[in-house]
Design a protein around this nucleic acid. Sequence first.
RNA 1: GGAGAGGUGGCUGAGUGGUCGAAAGCGGUCGCCUGCUAAGCGAUUGUACGGUCAUAAAGCCGUACCCCGGGUUCGAAUCCCGGCCUCUCCGCCA
Length: 424
Amino acid sequence: MLDAKFVRAEPEKVRQALVYKNCDPTLLDQFLLLDEKRRGLLYEVEKLKAERNTVSEQIAQMKREKKDAAAEIERMREVSQRIKEMDSELSELEQKLTDVLMNIPNVPHESVPLCKDDTENKIIRCEGEKREFDFEPVPHWELAAALDIIDFERGSKIAGSGFILYKGLGAKLERSLINWMLDVHTLEHNYVEVFPPFLINRRSMIGTGQLPKFELDMYHTDKDDDLFLDPTAEVPVTNIFMDEILDGRELPINLTAYTACFRREAGAAGKDTRGLLRVHQFDKVELVKFCTPETSYDEHEKLLADAEDILKRLRLPYRVVLLSAGDMSFAAAKCYDLELYAPGVDKWLEVSSCSNFEAFQARRANIRYRPGPGAKPEFVHTLNGSGVALPRLVVSILENYQQPDGTVEVPDVLRPYVGAEVIA
RNA sequence: GGAGAGGUGGCUGAGUGGUCGAAAGCGGUCGCCUGCUAAGCGAUUGUACGGUCAUAAAGCCGUACCCCGGGUUCGAAUCCCGGCCUCUCCGCCA
């Protein structure tokens, strides 16, 4: 959520954000109109409340002196009635105002290309060499089926399409990757590991910006519980400090978490759905940072480097893409995607989005810090990035490390975890 | 699932329907003092929204906030109802 004062002061920046992030541009005018109305009404009702407070005090005084206050009480009865009516009108206005504000996206950082779609995304750099094959590389679903490490049919049988059953060394590879990535981030990148709940309440989903706009993308339990299945560890981990005031001296706080992630992927039907490319449940190791506004863009680069390090250590070819405004998420101010090359499907696959949300999430989730002793609390800046998401990483490993006989070499760094040099 | 207790400021913890934004302590900040440190003394110390000012800061004025939402009342931290959460005991269970 943006600061109402910012929207008032910089309407043109907000209008631009609405246009380039493909949101309803009239939201700005709705906001300004409602805001104006609200301030007028607020002034009126507060005047009445001030009167009520003074007269109530007089009544108390008169009662103490045993004087008759019947006339004042009668008058205040009417004033209170009036206040009640105006208050309910006001809270209706405020509800509308919040609804509007909640649907206004974050403003892109000045370094972000202004474009409504992905056509102006910038490839910042490519890392690692694409492997030269002296045979025709096959897609991961063929490799996995032949090696019997993923059973797509039985996964579907249990849950539905887009749900994966890993087997044998496939399951072990998955578990190894999770453990290895967590070890790298905690032991070498200075993150603290957390293991959050996988079911999340509505308030938290609003806090990070998944709601109210994207409710249909989420799995939701029945009305009595009103809980959502974790779509990304960003949600439970960012909300750890909801409604708290952090000590500025503790910042930056770096957290990493493994969670399963659940997404309905409504509206993505038929697109890249083969094999592991787009699934409803997947594993992910996430990186989350809380920092001061002064350092958030430096921390953003560090976050990117920490995620990239995983891909470098696995010696996989990838590229770094700076997303344009229209391709970024609703809450982000700036975002880099990491895309791994997968030779079997001959595609660049997104395995991480590293975003700086500035104070957008912190304002919604009410996460503040005290810059110094006795100083006023300020909103923190929050950042997160996948470090990294598993299915497409597995795709890239299988397809890049495949051998002519259909077996797959295990990357060096994973061998102690998998306990094998080859998946055969 | 059943029974009970409770949710107060950065923290601990009092609290009477009106003089409570809220005692006290801790912590923080500023100053004094002790030649350093520790201790001591004095003062100060919540947040949000709106207004005033020049849509700067400070100041000043107002309103709201003692878990959340309703209600009673001229007036609610205080009384009533609903919800959420925490703790204890029992049940069930990994």
